[in-house]
Every structure is written in structure tokens, then in C-alpha cells.
């Protein structure tokens, strides 16, 4: 019987005190223990990006390869944490407006990855977007509309932030 670890983990701005098993991944914690299914299980081996969440602000990581017990005192954001008082995040809105969603399974991970990419580079070229999205796989869209959505979001976010962080 494996030891349990008591951790405090902030998720989408809310502090959780949880007991996790040694071999429990963050993905397993989110979906099965906390019943937060918005973060998806795709491959389980860090290759598809469906499980992408942000840690400590805007760093993208794979939840399937993160041991929950190592996250004591940390802060993570899932796609459910992006909305602001009922208003969708510009990246979420752009994905909808640009029809960058088909089956929707890659979308939470794609959105989180896009948020991370734009935090590091607020005005990316198409090449930079495509490189930044490596590690997130989409079987449906062929990526073109996803790339468009990120470009549109980057422009909208400059306006969103009142013109700060533009080119």
C-alpha cells in the first residue's frame, strides 16, 4: 500500500488540500479525484498535448507526466480557469470565431498552449506559432484554423490589455 502525500495545490485560483498517492499523476488527480474533466487524456506519454495545463502562471506542462505529490504549494491553471467573470479569454473566443474547433478533444490543450505561447511572445509570426504548438496534436483541423485563431487572439490581446505588450 503506497504512502499518501498531503499537498496544497491552487487550481484556477482556488486552494485545494488533497491527499494523493505516490504514483498519481496530476491528470489523474484532476479528472478522477477532483472531477475536473476539462483537461483531456490523449496519449498519457507527453506526445499529444491534450493534457496541457499551465503551472506558476504561464508555463505549459503535460499533466500526464507530472506527479501530483511534487506539486505542493504550486499553482496551476486549466482551461476552465481562463474565463474572467463569465467572459471568455481572447484565445478561447478566437478559437470559436475562427472555427478552430472540430471534435474539440485537442482544444483545451491547444488553448492552454496558445495562452502560454502568447505570454512569452505577444506578436508571433506564423512560423513561431507553428513551432510553439509543437507537442499539441490535432487529428481534425489540419491546424490552419488553429494558427489563424492564435494570430487573431494575439491582435485582440494587444487591444484587451489596452495596447500594452504590442509589437
Amino acid at each position: 500500500m503506497m504512502k499518501e502525500h498531503a499537498i496544497t495545490l491552487e487550481i484556477n485560483g482556488v486552494n485545494h488540500q488533497i491527499n494523493v498517492a505516490s504514483n498519481q499523476t496530476l491528470l489523474e488527480l484532476l479528472r478522477n479525484q477532483l472531477l475536473m474533466p476539462e483537461t483531456k487524456y490523449g496519449c498519457g506519454t507527453g506526445e499529444c498535448g491534450a493534457c496541457t495545463v499551465l503551472i506558476d502562471g504561464d508555463k505549459a506542462i503535460n499533466a500526464c507526466l507530472t506527479l501530483a505529490a511534487t506539486l505542493n504549494g504550486r499553482s496551476i491553471t486549466t482551461v476552465a480557469g481562463l474565463e474572467n467573470n463569465g467572459e471568455l479569454h481572447p484565445v478561447q473566443q478566437a478559437f470559436i470565431d475562427e472555427a478552430a474547433i472540430q471534435c474539440g478533444f485537442c482544444t483545451p490543450g491547444m488553448v492552454m498552449k496558445s495562452v502560454s505561447l502568447l505570454a512569452a511572445n505577444s506578436n508571433p509570426t506564423e512560423q513561431e506559432i507553428r513551432e510553439g504548438l509543437e507537442g499539441n496534436i490535432c487529428r481534425c483541423t489540419g491546424y490552419a484554423k488553429i494558427v489563424n485563431a492564435v494570430q487573431v487572439a494575439s491582435k485582440n490581446m494587444v487591444q484587451y490589455a489596452g495596447g500594452e505588450g504590442g509589437s
Binding site: 505549459a60 503535460n62 507530472t66 502560454s116 505561447l117 507537442g135 499539441n136
Partner: peptide, 9 residues
């Protein structure tokens, strides 16, 4: 190297 998510970790 690998992917941006993996580079972070």
C-alpha cells in the same frame, strides 16, 4: 528538443 511542454520540465 521534444516539445515546449517537455522543455519546461
Amino acid at each position: 528538443f521534444a516539445t515546449p511542454q517537455l522543455k519546461n520540465v
